[in-house]
C-alpha cells in the first residue's frame, strides 16, 4: 500500500515521465504548467485555515452559530472555499458527543481548510474500520473517550465535506484568536484527536 518499494517507485516514476514527454509532444501540457498546477494544489491549503475558523467560532458566538448553520457560507466570510461547488458541514463536539470524519469510498476531504490529507485518511484500514468500530479506532489514535460519549461518524462525499469543531480546551479563557488557533491540530479537525 505504501510507495516505499524503491523498484516499484522507480518503475512508476519512469512511466510518469514518459507520459509527460508524450503529452508535451502532443502540445497538451508543458512542464511549466504542471509546476503551476502543483503549486496551486498546495498553495492556500493548510490546516492553519481550519484552525483559524475554529478559533473564530470559539471567540464569537454569532459566528459559531452561522458556522454550524451553514458552514460553506461561514468559511467564505473568512475567504475560504470561494467558488467551490462543494458544501461544507461543520459538526460540533460537545461533552456528550464526539464527531469523526471519513471518506469510505476514497479520500474526499476539505483540502483548502486542512491541507493535503495524511496517508492514514486514505488507507483502507481507516476507511473500512472507523464506521464499524469508531471507539476502537479512536483509541488507536490515542483518544480514549468516556463510555458515555456518543460518537458520530460522518462519511464524506464528492459534494459534502465535513469539518469537526473541537471543544475549546479548559483554561484558555485569556487567549486571543491567534493563540487559540495555534492549539488546534489537524487530527482534531478530522476528529481523531481532542484538544
Amino acid at each position: 500500500m505504501t510507495s516505499g518499494d524503491h523498484h516499484t517507485d522507480a518503475t512508476i516514476a519512469r512511466r510518469v515521465r514518459r507520459l509527460e514527454t508524450l503529452l508535451e509532444e502532443k502540445g497538451l501540457i508543458t512542464g511549466e504548467r504542471l509546476d503551476e498546477a502543483i503549486d496551486a494544489f498546495l498553495a492556500e491549503s493548510s490546516p492553519a485555515n481550519g484552525a483559524r475558523v475554529v478559533a473564530r467560532a470559539w471567540t464569537d458566538d454569532a459566528y459559531r452559530a452561522r458556522l454550524l448553520a451553514d458552514g460553506t457560507a461561514a468559511v467564505r466570510e473568512l475567504g475560504y472555499m470561494e467558488g467551490s461547488f462543494q458544501r461544507l458541514r461543520v459538526v460540533e463536539n460537545t461533552a456528550s458527543r464526539h464527531n469523526v470524519v471519513v471518506c469510505t469510498l476514497c479520500s474526499c476531504y476539505p483540502l483548502r481548510l486542512l491541507g493535503p490529507s495524511p496517508s492514514w485518511y486514505k488507507s483502507e484500514a481507516y476507511r473500512s474500520r472507523v464506521v464499524r468500530e469508531p471507539r476502537e479506532v479512536l483509541r488507536e489514535f490515542g483518544l480514549e473517550l468516556p463510555p458515555g460519549t456518543d460518537i458520530t461518524v460522518w462519511d464524506s462525499s464528492a459534494e459534502t465535506r465535513y469539518l469537526v469543531l473541537p471543544r475549546r480546551p479548559e483554561g484558555t479563557e485569556g487567549l486571543g484568536e491567534e493563540e487559540l488557533a495555534a492549539l488546534v491540530t489537524r487530527n482534531a479537525l478530522i476528529g481523531t484527536a481532542a484538544l
Binding site: 505504501t2 510507495s3 516505499g4 517507485d9 512508476i12 516514476a13 510518469v16 515521465r17 507520459l19 509527460e20 503529452l23 497538451l28 501540457i29 504548467r33 504542471l34 509546476d35 498546477a37 502543483i38 496551486a40 494544489f41 498546495l42 491541507g115 493535503p116 495524511p118 496517508s119 492514514w120 488507507s123 484500514a125 481507516y126 474500520r129 479506532v137 488507536e140 489514535f141 490515542g142 489537524r186 487530527n187 481523531t192
Partner: peptide, 24 residues
Amino acid sequence: IDTTDDTEPFHADWEARVVGLYNT
C-alpha cells in the same frame, strides 16, 4: 491503521507530477 501524522503532501516527486497532470 498506521496513524503516523505525516505532513508531507507527497512521498516522491512522481506523485506531485501526477497531481499536476490531473489538474492540467
